[in-house]
Design a protein around this nucleic acid. Structure first.
Lengths: 233, 233
DNA sequence: GTCGTTTATATGTATATACATAATAAAGGT
DNA sequence: ACCTTTATTATGTATATACATATAAACGAC
């Protein structure tokens, strides 16, 4: 019946409780791993595991020789799950579809070229896709694709029924990048695709993705109204 | 000169490279810890540390007895840092100030009461604050505070020069809760405080915070235009 | 004092070993 | 065939030990 954790999780829980009870106040040093190990009657490695976990969550700050202190102004670290749109849609029981609106090869604007780290005149694929949930607009996607990251003589026909993102995940592989979220007034084409007035408040996700040393793609996703990004602390 | 990682991080890097190169394709099983330990010439614990780290990032899925497989549709897990506004502002070299606009005791609307889990008629503190960066509007805060979570006979004068959030962090202590981000059209008062037209697209952070078993506070933060939430994958 | 050098120390990591746990796979019984 | 029991196995955790590393603090030279 008792859902009390055991092992290192029990130690994490106890330390967390002491922080919350302010036995160990923000900014204050806590005992060394060795002392805690003696108090809890376990090995130092076990205490280390617990404290490391709390430090990863931003609740403790640890430095060699200096020791461990309770973070003064804890910058809450929340783990966001960035969903694949298809899954996000299908998770709510609606059917998903992606409609490729436009696909052309052209040179990107100055800032986009910079963002992708390609020379100013480089010719990239520019794709506009509308993501549909139960046949209704879900998100408008504006994407630049670096041909250098694609197989030779790639064309959008290769996508089949997959969205660009899904195709990339399957054929180009994993990568890393960065994401930014913001609120913006809907641009002309976005508004039209989503069926909104121009200037409506939309939630925008911007992502740049890299592999090894070259940029793969830069995307701007304009989400339909009502979109919320949610997480638990 | 070589920034190549060592120890368990080197193993993590190698495994990651193999996943990215698709030596180990999505959905596929990878060798056991023991096999990898033999291959890399290290202890199983070291491999475990590397694989556990990748699993926490959502790139691998591990199950006892079953083994470890590459995640098929990796739901990217990004760690967001939710900053304290003062630090966020001061980090950019501007001076921070909080101005309490209104403070009154009243019953919240139905949805807010539900969100905080208080009875419909309960009287809460309702505070409106404007956060300033270099004397310019930075964010408009609309907050409901549960008096049950505060010291007896608490009044807003107790805040001094601290923002409500800062006061809570120092005096009420750590807590947990949930956060949601969305894009909305500016409400009447928000628009006025931020110096925007009504209906302008603003980035909204909504947070509910709990301690033990009772709600402490529910906040709606309307950020000035240009606000971006940024993270790295 | 100010600057570099040494030393002490808490955390970080690696190791072998052992046992716990979950969950699949195999064996057995009906 | 179906259900139950048992074995097997990969990961999960705990342990003692050892050494690495960052860095605060003490020390000395000037």
């Amino acid at each position: 019946m008792s859902g009390d954790p055991q092992g290192w999780e029990a130690i994490r829980a106890e330390v967390l409780a002491r922080i919350r009870r302010r036995d160990w106040a923000p900014g204050q040093m806590i005992p060394t791993e060795e002392e805690l190990a003696r108090e809890f009657g376990c090995a130092r490695a076990t205490v280390n595991r617990a404290l490391r976990d709390l430090a990863e969550g931003g609740l403790l700050e640890r430095r060699r020789k200096a020791g461990t202190r309770v973070t003064e102004n804890p910058v809450r670290k929340a783990t966001l799950s960035i969903p694949v749109i298809r899954q996000e849609v299908e998770a709510t029981g609606r059917t998903y579809a992606a409609r490729l609106i436009r696909a052309e090869r052209r040179a990107p604007s100055e800032p986009v070229a910079g963002q992708l780290g390609v020379p100013a005149g480089a010719v990239l694929w520019h794709l506009v896709t509308l993501h549909l949930a139960a046949s209704r607009p879900h998100a408008a996607e504006n994407r630049w694709l670096n041909p250098a990251a694609l197989p030779p003589r790639w064309t959008p026909e290769r996508l089949g029924t997959l969205s660009v993102n899904e195709w990339l995940v399957r054929h180009v592989g994993f990568a890393w990048g960065d994401i930014a979220f913001s609120a913006e007034a809907a641009q002309e084409e976005e508004a039209a695709l989503l069926g909104l007035d121009r200037g409506a408040a939309i939630f925008v996700t911007e992502r740049t993705t890299w592999a090894e040393d070259h940029a793969i793609t830069a995307v701007r996703l304009a989400h339909a109204p009502g979109y919320r990004l949610h997480t638990v602390l």
